[in-house]
Nucleic acid binder design. Structure first.
Lengths: 242, 242
DNA sequence: TGATACTACCTTACGGCGTAAGGCAGCTGA
DNA sequence: TCAGCTGCCTTACGCCGTAAGGTAGTATCA
């Protein structure tokens, strides 16, 4: 896959190669035209296949059967692509949990939904977690979530802190599961097992509950703890109205 | 700062330029010799000054007054440097909160300590959060934290889930404050303010509590909620012993 | 019908990156 | 005196994002 074989690659991937005239313009016809949507979908797939660090515009071009610079006709920079990808997965967070359910259940479902969604795209999530959700779609989602939290019956201030702390927990949990103690790019020189056993007995004793099979339960443990906390606050508010 | 002026840069930065012989070997003497420690400290400073994305071995070399490849004499790769940096800041987490304090207070203090430490190094934290703590020092810290959690009087299983969920919350919170809604590399094309006011009223209403001045309170809100949750679990255990 | 403008995509080139391979000066011990 | 080692430098390779400018095909209008 050197530099010299681009035109070959283009024609090779395409269908119906009957009437090739030989001119560069001809071969362009043979594949589906580019579009923002096509670029985004290919990028999402490439990122999860090769990892965030290995994702590049040039490789994306290879996958799409075009030159790297052609992509810049649809997105002004790589950052703009990344932004579009974040938006792409936020779109999958709609519709949110039905409004006729109790707020506890809605929160639970949203937590699960967000987690399931992002664990399908672990590589992209390491990007999502360290960037903003300031797009229109992101704001819409935050807006809906704030309404959901308001239904718990807390003060406005408590409602916002509830939204924030629940989000903290969610993202922290997913990040840990995604890039955490068990998977992903780990320390270059890990500590040998026998040394761990000798020097860090608590870690060993905790081992069974660190396993991936326990992640679901640990995640729910925290979610329920927080929901109970919010509910308890709401009950106190009712007992001592401002 | 082109490529051709390396040797000039070396001699210019150094002290005591009295006896320069002119040979390349001479000028080397004029600056402090390299060492792992010196490289780590320069790297930490450079990362916070220029950001994680802009951090490179070549720039690190410039700062240190040496060629990029000289650094590879002390670290086999950039990844190894990053690992050393993570270890460097974990070292600052010792000593942990005194063991004679109640576990609630120890947890509170550790939360604050971890948060204060990482907020001083926001750029590095975006790396820490998405990587492992599998070094000896990291394991030692986890080991101590597990002991701290065990003092709450929960079952072994609950203790581990407590450790995990508290860590989820901590890292999620710090990450959000570090790369969150208010700062850092945001969306390339932010939504205009008047559009936010029109379409996302809940976000506007929540605005006052999203401000940076509220972050401390929001952080503590979540910490206390979790600690109360753990304490309540412990009390239930005492009422219904296994 | 032919000129014009626009769209979609390609070519070339630049400066930066991590790092493999190898060189070379100065010191240390034999 | 000389071998070997330490500490650092030189060169080069194949990546990267992207600025600048080209070019073929299509649509529009005279």
């Amino acid at each position: 896959m050197g530099v010299g074989d681009q035109s070959l690659g283009q024609e090779g991937d395409a269908a119906a190669p009957g009437d090739e005239g030989g001119a560069a313009g001809r071969s362009r016809r043979l594949r589906e035209p580019l579009s923002r949507e096509r670029i985004e979908i290919a990028a999402l797939a490439l990122i999860e296949r090769e990892g965030l660090a290995a994702f590049s515009i040039r490789k994306l071009g290879q996958v799409l059967g075009c030159e790297a610079m052609s992509i810049y006709h649809y997105f002004p920079s790589k950052s703009h692509i990344m932004d579009a990808l974040v938006d792409h997965i936020i779109a999958e967070m709609f519709p949110i949990a039905p409004a006729d359910l109790p707020w506890e259940e809605r929160l639970r479902r949203t937590a699960r939904q967000w987690r399931d969604l992002l664990k399908k795209r672990p590589s992209l999530f390491t990007f999502v977690a360290t960037h903003r959700l300031n797009t229109r779609l992101g704001l819409r989602w935050i807006n809906e979530m704030l309404k959901m939290c308001a239904a718990a019956g807390l003060t406005r201030e408590q409602t916002v802190r509830m939204f924030r702390t629940f989000g903290y927990y969610l993202n922290g949990a997913i990040l840990d599961e995604t890039a955490g103690y068990a998977r992903g790019p780990s320390t270059v020189e890990p500590v040998p097992d026998d040394e761990v056993a000798r020097d860090y007995p608590e870690v060993i004793a905790a081992g069974p509950y660190f396993r991936e099979s326990e992640w679901d339960k640990t995640f729910d443990f925290g979610v329920e703890l927080l929901i109970e906390g919010y509910a308890r606050l709401a009950k106190e508010n009712r007992r001592h109205p401002a």
